[in-house]
């Protein structure tokens, strides 16, 4: 077991094989060797670390609002936070995305937590948790990718291209078709 200390000073006893998925922690452990000394993680909060180190219980999914679901459970919404986007019934149909890269860990989070996890993954150097699939089409499981409009809608991003950029985008799409 390895003792981790988070930015809000909570201590976590975690199995070595789980924490070693983090290249940062793995390197630290190799440098320090066998030791009872806690490993400080000043850039990771306890709530995020809990999500990152929770044991695997099944495939994890993300719905169209970016909230993670367990496949076995119903949608669990963050109680303290209103839905990020208000959408029609049709739009809110569930879209799922496996994040098998994280060994199908069980996490139920809203978008805010998702991006905190991504930041933590970057700090801890866990490439697999960077969740590249959030840019892909969850409804089809690798069949096709999320178009830009869907990415915008999902993450509250605005289309702010200048007319020149829009003309350039049109051209590059024509090239991609014709080449």
């Amino acid at each position: 077991m390895v003792l981790l200390v988070t930015s809000d000073n909570e201590q976590f006893q975690t199995e070595k094989d789980i924490v070693e998925r983090s290249v940062l922690i793995k390197n630290m452990l190799e440098d320090v060797g066998e030791s009872d000394q806690p490993i400080p993680l000043p850039n990771v909060s306890s709530s995020v670390l809990k999500k990152v180190t929770q044991p695997s219980t099944g495939p994890t999914e993300i719905d169209v609002r970016g909230r993670y679901l367990s496949t076995a459970s119903t949608t669990v919404e963050s109680p303290s936070r209103p839905p990020i986007l208000e959408q029609s019934q049709d739009e809110t149909r569930k879209r799922t995305t496996d994040i098998s890269e994280w060994d199908q860990k069980f996490i139920t989070v809203d978008q805010e937590m998702l991006f905190e996890i991504i930041l933590a993954a970057n700090y801890l150097d866990i490439k697999s948790l960077l969740c590249r699939r959030w840019l892909q089409d969850g409804s089809q499981h690798d069949q096709g990718a999320r178009p830009p409009e869907e990415i915008r809608k999902l993450f509250n991003i605005v289309n702010d291209f200048t007319p020149e950029e829009e003309a350039q985008i049109k051209k590059e799409n024509e090239w991609a078709e014709d080449r």
Binding site: I84, Q111, F115, I118, L119, L130, L135, F155, N156, I157
Partner: peptide, 21 residues
Amino acid sequence: YITSPVCTLPVELLSEIFKLS
């Protein structure tokens, strides 16, 4: 947009995620 969580991602990390995509 300014307050959306996706905007909290630093440019280097966004670039890294793009590469993985």
